[in-house]
Protein backbone atom coordinates (compact mmCIF):
# COMPACT_ATOMS: atom_id res chain seq x y z
CA UNK A 1 0.00 0.00 0.00
CA UNK A 2 1.23 3.46 -0.82
CA UNK A 3 1.81 5.51 2.30
CA UNK A 4 2.13 9.29 2.34
CA UNK A 5 5.83 8.85 3.08
CA UNK A 6 6.70 6.67 0.09
CA UNK A 7 4.73 9.06 -2.09
CA UNK A 8 6.80 12.06 -1.05
CA UNK A 9 10.01 10.02 -1.49
CA UNK A 10 9.11 9.55 -5.16
CA UNK A 11 8.35 13.20 -5.77
CA UNK A 12 8.44 13.93 -9.51
CA UNK A 13 11.28 16.10 -10.78
CA UNK A 14 10.69 19.81 -10.91
CA UNK A 15 9.64 20.50 -14.50
CA UNK A 16 12.18 23.24 -15.17
CA UNK A 17 15.01 21.17 -13.71
CA UNK A 18 13.93 18.20 -15.77
CA UNK A 19 14.05 20.32 -18.94
CA UNK A 20 17.56 21.51 -18.07
CA UNK A 21 18.78 18.00 -17.38
CA UNK A 22 17.19 16.65 -20.56
CA UNK A 23 18.92 19.36 -22.51
CA UNK A 24 22.26 18.51 -20.89
CA UNK A 25 21.83 14.80 -21.71
CA UNK A 26 20.87 15.64 -25.28
CA UNK A 27 23.98 17.76 -25.77
CA UNK A 28 26.04 14.95 -24.29
CA UNK A 29 24.48 12.38 -26.63
CA UNK A 30 25.05 14.65 -29.63
CA UNK A 31 28.77 14.88 -28.80
CA UNK A 32 28.98 11.14 -28.10
CA UNK A 33 27.37 10.36 -31.46
CA UNK A 34 29.60 12.81 -33.29
CA UNK A 35 32.74 11.16 -31.87
CA UNK A 36 31.65 7.68 -32.96
CA UNK A 37 30.23 8.79 -36.31
CA UNK A 38 33.53 10.45 -37.11
CA UNK A 39 35.26 7.11 -36.37
CA UNK A 40 37.28 8.49 -33.47
CA UNK A 41 36.92 5.34 -31.40
CA UNK A 42 39.92 6.07 -29.20
CA UNK A 43 38.14 9.19 -27.90
CA UNK A 44 35.09 7.11 -26.93
CA UNK A 45 36.32 6.12 -23.42
CA UNK A 46 36.59 9.80 -22.48
CA UNK A 47 32.79 9.93 -22.24
CA UNK A 48 32.87 7.61 -19.23
CA UNK A 49 33.80 7.88 -15.58
CA UNK A 50 36.87 5.91 -14.39
CA UNK A 51 34.53 3.17 -13.16
CA UNK A 52 32.10 3.60 -16.07
CA UNK A 53 30.15 0.59 -17.30
CA UNK A 54 29.14 -0.04 -20.88
CA UNK A 55 26.96 -2.93 -22.05
CA UNK A 56 25.38 -3.84 -25.36
CA UNK A 57 22.57 -6.31 -24.76
CA UNK A 58 20.16 -8.08 -27.10
CA UNK A 59 16.61 -7.36 -26.05
CA UNK A 60 15.64 -11.02 -25.86
CA UNK A 61 18.48 -11.69 -23.41
CA UNK A 62 17.43 -8.68 -21.34
CA UNK A 63 13.80 -9.81 -21.36
CA UNK A 64 14.83 -13.31 -20.24
CA UNK A 65 17.21 -11.92 -17.56
CA UNK A 66 20.14 -13.58 -19.30
CA UNK A 67 23.33 -11.71 -18.41
CA UNK A 68 25.29 -12.07 -21.68
CA UNK A 69 26.31 -8.86 -23.44
CA UNK A 70 27.49 -8.43 -27.02
CA UNK A 71 30.04 -5.95 -25.68
CA UNK A 72 30.73 -5.20 -22.05
CA UNK A 73 33.25 -2.93 -20.38
CA UNK A 74 33.69 -2.50 -16.67
CA UNK A 75 35.85 0.52 -16.04
CA UNK A 76 38.31 2.61 -18.01
CA UNK A 77 40.77 -0.26 -18.63
CA UNK A 78 38.23 -2.36 -20.50
CA UNK A 79 36.85 0.69 -22.32
CA UNK A 80 40.32 1.57 -23.56
CA UNK A 81 41.07 -2.05 -24.50
CA UNK A 82 37.87 -2.20 -26.55
CA UNK A 83 38.79 1.06 -28.29
CA UNK A 84 42.33 -0.17 -28.94
CA UNK A 85 41.11 -3.47 -30.38
CA UNK A 86 38.78 -1.69 -32.79
CA UNK A 87 41.41 0.84 -33.82
CA UNK A 88 44.35 -1.55 -34.11
CA UNK A 89 43.60 -5.28 -34.04
CA UNK A 90 40.17 -6.01 -35.55
CA UNK A 91 39.79 -6.68 -39.26
CA UNK A 92 36.65 -5.22 -40.81
CA UNK A 93 35.59 -3.52 -44.00
CA UNK A 94 35.66 0.27 -43.80
CA UNK A 95 32.27 1.72 -42.94
CA UNK A 96 30.38 4.84 -42.08
CA UNK A 97 28.09 4.71 -39.09
CA UNK A 98 25.56 7.35 -38.20
CA UNK A 99 23.67 7.59 -34.93
CA UNK A 100 20.20 9.09 -34.72
CA UNK A 101 19.43 9.63 -31.06
CA UNK A 102 15.97 10.61 -29.88
CA UNK A 103 15.37 13.40 -27.34
CA UNK A 104 16.42 12.19 -23.90
CA UNK A 105 13.89 11.31 -21.25
CA UNK A 106 15.18 12.03 -17.76
CA UNK A 107 13.48 9.88 -15.14
CA UNK A 108 15.45 10.64 -11.99
CA UNK A 109 18.06 12.95 -10.48
CA UNK A 110 19.46 12.58 -6.97
CA UNK A 111 21.65 15.69 -7.03
CA UNK A 112 24.57 13.80 -8.53
CA UNK A 113 23.34 11.01 -10.82
CA UNK A 114 20.94 11.59 -13.70
CA UNK A 115 18.93 8.57 -14.79
CA UNK A 116 17.84 8.90 -18.40
CA UNK A 117 16.97 7.01 -21.51
CA UNK A 118 16.88 7.70 -25.22
CA UNK A 119 16.14 5.66 -28.32
CA UNK A 120 18.82 5.25 -30.94
CA UNK A 121 19.05 4.14 -34.52
CA UNK A 122 22.36 3.41 -36.21
CA UNK A 123 22.69 3.41 -39.97
CA UNK A 124 25.69 1.70 -41.48
CA UNK A 125 27.12 2.17 -44.94
CA UNK A 126 29.70 -0.14 -46.51
CA UNK A 127 31.62 0.54 -49.70
CA UNK A 128 29.45 0.02 -52.81
CA UNK A 129 26.52 -1.14 -50.71
CA UNK A 130 23.26 0.60 -49.89
CA UNK A 131 22.93 2.09 -46.41
CA UNK A 132 21.30 -0.33 -44.00
CA UNK A 133 19.87 -0.34 -40.53
CA UNK A 134 22.52 -1.72 -38.17
CA UNK A 135 20.67 -1.30 -34.90
CA UNK A 136 17.71 0.24 -33.23
CA UNK A 137 17.70 0.23 -29.49
CA UNK A 138 17.40 2.11 -26.27
CA UNK A 139 20.06 3.68 -24.08
CA UNK A 140 19.39 3.18 -20.37
CA UNK A 141 21.82 5.55 -18.76
CA UNK A 142 23.19 6.86 -15.53
CA UNK A 143 25.21 10.06 -15.86
CA UNK A 144 27.47 11.60 -13.27
CA UNK A 145 27.16 15.38 -13.12
CA UNK A 146 30.66 16.76 -12.65
CA UNK A 147 30.59 20.55 -12.57
CA UNK A 148 28.90 21.46 -15.84
CA UNK A 149 30.08 18.24 -17.46
CA UNK A 150 28.32 14.89 -17.72
CA UNK A 151 30.07 11.53 -17.80
CA UNK A 152 28.56 8.10 -18.29
CA UNK A 153 28.51 6.08 -15.11
CA UNK A 154 26.55 3.33 -16.80
CA UNK A 155 25.20 2.93 -20.32
CA UNK A 156 23.15 -0.13 -21.20
CA UNK A 157 22.27 -0.29 -24.88
CA UNK A 158 19.36 -2.69 -25.29
CA UNK A 159 18.86 -3.47 -28.96
CA UNK A 160 15.69 -4.67 -30.69
CA UNK A 161 17.62 -5.73 -33.80
CA UNK A 162 18.36 -9.11 -32.25
CA UNK A 163 19.43 -10.68 -35.54
CA UNK A 164 22.64 -8.70 -35.98
CA UNK A 165 23.62 -8.04 -39.61
CA UNK A 166 27.12 -9.62 -39.91
CA UNK A 167 28.67 -7.86 -36.91
CA UNK A 168 28.81 -4.71 -34.83
CA UNK A 169 32.21 -3.08 -34.94
CA UNK A 170 31.77 0.32 -33.27
CA UNK A 171 29.90 0.41 -29.96
CA UNK A 172 26.43 1.95 -30.32
Amino acid sequence: MLTAQTMTAKKPLDAALRRDLSFAVQEFNADYAETLDRGDIEAWPSYFTEDGIYRLIARDNADSSLPLSLMSCEGMGMLKDRAYAIAHTEMFAPRYVQHQISPARVTDFDGEIITAQANYVILETLVDEPTRLLQCGKYRDKFLMQGDRLLIKERNCIYDTVLVPTCIVYPP
Partner: peptide, 11 residues
Protein backbone atom coordinates in the same frame (compact mmCIF):
# COMPACT_ATOMS: atom_id res chain seq x y z
CA UNK B 1 24.04 -22.77 -16.96
CA UNK B 2 22.79 -20.67 -19.86
CA UNK B 3 24.34 -17.18 -19.94
CA UNK B 4 22.70 -15.90 -23.10
CA UNK B 5 22.39 -16.11 -26.87
CA UNK B 6 23.64 -13.98 -29.76
CA UNK B 7 22.18 -14.20 -33.22
CA UNK B 8 23.58 -12.81 -36.41
CA UNK B 9 22.98 -13.21 -40.09
CA UNK B 10 26.06 -13.83 -42.20
CA UNK B 11 26.22 -12.92 -45.85
Amino acid sequence: KLLGVHRNVMP
